[in-house]
Write a protein that binds this DNA or RNA. Sequence first.
DNA 1: CGATGAGTTGAAACGTCTCAATCTACGTGG
DNA 2: CCACGTAGATTGAGACGTTTCAACTCATCG
Lengths: 227, 227
Amino acid sequence: MFALCLPAHMGEADLNLLERVVKRRRLLRRGELLFRQGDRFHAVYAVKSGAIKSFLPVEGKTPLVIAFHLPGDLLALDAVGTGFYQYGARALETTSLCELPFDQLEALGSVVTSVQQQLVRLMSGQIRRDMLLHRLHCRTSAAGRLAAFLVNLSAHFARRGFAAAEFRLPMSRSDIGSYLGLTKETVSRLCTDFQQRGLVSFARKHVRIRDLFELERLAELPAAADR
Amino acid sequence: MFALCLPAHMGEADLNLLERVVKRRRLLRRGELLFRQGDRFHAVYAVKSGAIKSFLPVEGKTPLVIAFHLPGDLLALDAVGTGFYQYGARALETTSLCELPFDQLEALGSVVTSVQQQLVRLMSGQIRRDMLLHRLHCRTSAAGRLAAFLVNLSAHFARRGFAAAEFRLPMSRSDIGSYLGLTKETVSRLCTDFQQRGLVSFARKHVRIRDLFELERLAELPAAADR
DNA sequence: CGATGAGTTGAAACGTCTCAATCTACGTGG
DNA sequence: CCACGTAGATTGAGACGTTTCAACTCATCG
C-alpha cells in the first residue's frame, strides 16, 4: 500500500517513519476538487486509485488541462518552493489519495537519508517525464500526438504492473484534446481512424492496443513521417 | 559567483562546503557537445554564461530541441535517478558552466540540511517551469506559441536581473521552430509580422520587446482568441 | 572574395479548426 | 420502469492556418 504512495526501496524502519507522515486518506467523487489554483500549499498527494486532472482556468473558455495523474503518480510537486498550488486539481472519477504534509516530509527527510534521496529521485523522475511530454507535444501532427499519448499511457500502466494493452481512459475526449492541444472533434476522428486501421479498439472508455509497434512508429517521428 | 551556480539562501559555512563540490568549470565553444544522450550520468551543470540546448537525435531528421538553458539554469536534473543522460546537450555559443558531481552533492545534502532543501526547491522550480512550458505548447496557434516563448524569455532575464525588454536570442530560428513545434519559415514569418505590428523589433539576433502587454495578451489565450 | 549556412519571402497543398447536426449513454424524476 | 434531459461522442462540410517546396538574400568566415 505504501509502496504505491511513495514507491521506494526503503527499509522497514524507514517505512514506519514515513507512515507517520501520511496524514490522511482522501476520497473524491467524480468532478470534485482536490485543491484550487492559488490555494495555500501544505501537502503533496499520491494517487492510490482513480484519476486526477490538473488544470488551469482560462477566462471565458474551458479550463486548459495540464496533466493527468494516475495511480502511483504524485501531485503538486511543482508547488514546493512557492507556498501555493500552481494549478487546480479535479477528480475525473472516484479517486482515493494519500495526503503527505510537505513540511513533515521534509523534516523526516533531513533525518532519514533514504527518504530524502527518494524524494529527489521522485522529483527527477517527474522532470524526466515532463521533458518526455514536451517531446510529445512538439510533434505537429495530431496523429503523432495521440499515438504518443496512448503509448505513454500504456507504458505507464505497464510500469505499474497493470495490463499494457488493455485499460480504461478515465478522461473525456475533450480533456485529451485540451491536453494535447487539439479539439475534441479531431481526437474523436483520430480514434475512429486508428480503430479502422486496426491499431487500437475503442469501446466507450475502454481501450485495447492492437498494434503497439505501429503506434510507436506513428509516435516516434515528429511531424509527417508516415507518408 | 556561487549564487549563480546554486542560487540559494545559504549561510557562509554551507557555501564553503558547497564550494568543495564544484569540481571544475567547463568552457564550450559554439557547437561543442557537453554530453550525449546515453552518456553515463555523473554531474549536473549550472550555466554561468552563454546558452545550451538540450536535444534528442531523430534518425534522418534534424534533432528535436527539447529545452534551452540560459545563465542561471541547471542542466541534467532529469537524469538523476537513471544513471544516464536522457538528452544531448550542445552549446549555442561560447558557454561557461559549473560541473556539480551529483554523488558528492547528494552526500553533502545528507549532512547539510540547507543544501538538501535547496536541491528539492530547485527541482520543484524545474517542474513548475516545465508545466508552464506545457501550457505554452498547448496553444494551437503559432503566434500564441511564439509570443509565449518571447514573454517567457523576457521573464527569465528579468528574474535574473538582466534587461527584460532587450536581449539576445542565442538560438537560431530553426531551433526555435523545433522547440515550439513549428517550421523555421513560420517562425520567420511571425517575427516579421510581430515587427510590423510594432510588438517587437528584431535586429539579427537582438530582440527588443516594444509592447509586452499586447504580447502577453497574444500568449495568454489558447488558440484563436485575438480575432 | 567566394562558399556556406541562416534567414526571408512566395505560392500551392494539406491538415486541423470551426460550426452544425446527429447520436449515444447515463442519471434523474415521473 | 420508462421518458426525458443532459453531457459526451461522432460525423460532415467549408474556412483557415501552417507546412512544404522553391527561390532568393544576407551575413559570416574561411
